[in-house]
Design a binder for these strands. Structure first.
Lengths: 345, 345
DNA sequence: CTGAAAGCGCTTACAG
DNA sequence: CTGAAAGCGCTTACAG
């Protein structure tokens, strides 16, 4: 069994000798750079092909000071992460852009924020990546000044709440929450509660504000809000709290599908029928949302599109030095079975 | 704002000059190799420290022909992938080993098998990784001969059904399925069905065989089996088929938690009460399993441990040239609420 | 349009 | 125990 690793590597020196030109010219031809006559270029490519030349990424990296890779650092508890399909879809979207370009994705999953910053620093000093994706933006996010100082190109998923030198790719999730509230109000609900995500996370706070605004707009005050850390466990706890009140809500708007699914579970456990006695809406439209019973009325996000767009934006930034912010189409409400008119009791 | 990228890099040449030794000696000292006196080594390390020297991974890669990275290629539909927390937990486990060693994980998510093989080849010719993890083993898995030929070190998750030059890290999932069946039999069930995973996947077939064997051992024949591709949608469909039979099963053993959760949803939708009229067991113990209602009785896998062990094994193989197979503690049944005694009707 | 040379920052025999 | 040199395989000014 012959191993690729043992075969002596074909280098541009071999190609140059065979084609009767200099190494430099081979490099120029191979990189489609101007200054090589068409026929010379053709001959060089020809020779490279028959010799089976393949570029050495390592040599290219060293001399060009590029990594040909992009990085994603995720700071989350692994179990919580596992229940959130956002990243796998996001990554799949990123890959659709990177793979054809011959670029790789370097992924880090870290347990906490200090480790997260350290990981970015290591990525830079090791020259592992040419740019990174910044997800799960937080309030006053320390990663932004840190990356700015490191001089590493980045794209943020969502718009930061602070000055940022990086392009952002964002999606309006405010609309979807407002739609959810309006939908419930139209169904006849008045006591609507919100199980919010972490206020330290930008999307958590944004959805909560959208909820309050929509409630006010409907003349229902601010609505009852319970904050969580976005974990399934916290979503379940919050639901328990809401449902054990003397006057419980007839509908709950959850800031994420995993929490909403846990909410359905808690309601059923407490003998509160969904949607008859309690309407529930989620956010994300994860695959499970269609398969729980009743199927979850939720707001559809598009993480794959987000991944694709973020990758394109980041590559643009790296290649041209600048990139414009992108706003993706707003996430929309998807009506399924978990919300209906409240039954009078 | 000063950027790290613009600062001229401190190299071993600088350290060598400052310490009054040769570059080679600096390299030896920095890599803890024999042949450097203790005091010289100390002085060199000292100088490197005060100069703020940091190794150039790119230069190391080129001259040492190593990548300091490991690879994971996942061939799955992104949406299906998102519902399966296995990989995120597995990756988190892998990272706990890689990060302290200064190694990175290169992740690829590809849509199909041909792309998968091509991705491995590209990883090798690009010299992106020093070894790879092989997950989701299939029958007659083409990746094994492919990687063997490429000469890339690998570790398989589970034992292949074919000759393999690679160490494996496996976990007995047979026991858990048998326990599930015994548990149901003890509860009084006799009509027990199995919603199996894909027979093309080793763990799908293995769990199905374990189910049949356990049924036979209980004197219940082979039991009714419906095959799926492990997707949530297929799990839901299979449940629908099973429950719409004239004589439906009183219990279903699912080959995965996502399918089992979809099964609970379908049962509820059809007005079949779980666990009163239908007992359900799963496999994996994903986080959702504890939060659906009734909470899922399932078999607990430990993907983080698997990730850690696989990483350790693969590193051992890369560094020493060989590594022994590892068998992790068997996955055990976790009894929760989704299985109970069948009610007579 | 093309060539010869230096350089990226390490590692690794080979000498002493 | 230490040094001087070649080499990893490219890219990139600098000349012509």
């Amino acid at each position: 069994m012959e191993s690729t690793r043992d075969a002596p590597r074909v280098t541009i020196a071999d190609v140059a000798r065979e084609a009767g030109v200099s190494k430099g010219l081979v490099s120029f031809a191979l990189n489609d750079r101007p200054g090589v006559s068409a026929e010379t270029r053709a001959r060089i490519l020809q020779v490279a092909g028959t010799l089976g030349w393949t570029p050495s990424l390592r040599a290219r990296s060293l001399s060009s000071k590029r990594s040909f890779a992009l990085g994603l650092v995720i700071a989350r508890d692994p179990e919580v992460l596992g229940s959130d399909p956002f990243f796998t879809s996001f990554i799949a979207g990123v890959e659709t852009i990177l793979a054809p370009e011959g670029l790789a994705l370097v992924l880090s999953v870290v347990p906490d924020e200090p480790t997260e910053l350290q990981t970015y620093r290591t990525l830079v000093t090791d020259g592992r990546v040419d740019g990174v994706f910044l997800s799960d933006l937080r309030r006053d996010d320390a990663r932004i000044p840190c990356l700015a100082e490191l001089g590493l190109p980045a794209v943020t998923l969502g718009r930061p709440d602070q000055p940022s030198p990086f392009p952002s790719v964002s999606i309006d999730d405010t609309d979807g929450v407002a739609e959810s509230v309006r939908h419930l109000v139209e169904l006849g609900h008045r006591r609507i509660a919100h199980v919010a995500g972490s206020p330290a996370m930008l999307h958590g706070g944004r959805r909560r504000d959208a909820f309050s605004a929509a409630m006010s707009a409907a003349g229902l005050g601010n609505g009852q809000i319970v904050e969580t850390d976005f974990s399934i466990a916290a979503g379940a706890d919050a639901t328990r709290v809401l449902l054990s009140q003397p006057e419980r809500p007839t509908a709950i708007v959850f800031a994420s599908d995993p929490m909403a699914i846990a909410g359905i579970g808690v309601a059923q456990e407490l003998g509160v029928s969904v949607p008859d006695q309690l309407s529930i809406t989620g956010f994300d439209d994860i695959e499970f949302a269609r398969y729980v019973y009743p199927a979850l009325t939720t707001v559809g996000a598009t993480p794959m599109v987000w991944g694709r767009t973020a990758a394109t934006t980041l590559l643009g930034l790296i290649r041209t030095g600048s990139a414009a912010d992108v706003e993706l189409p707003a996430a929309r409400l998807i009506i399924r079975g978990s919300a209906s008119s409240p039954t009078s009791h």
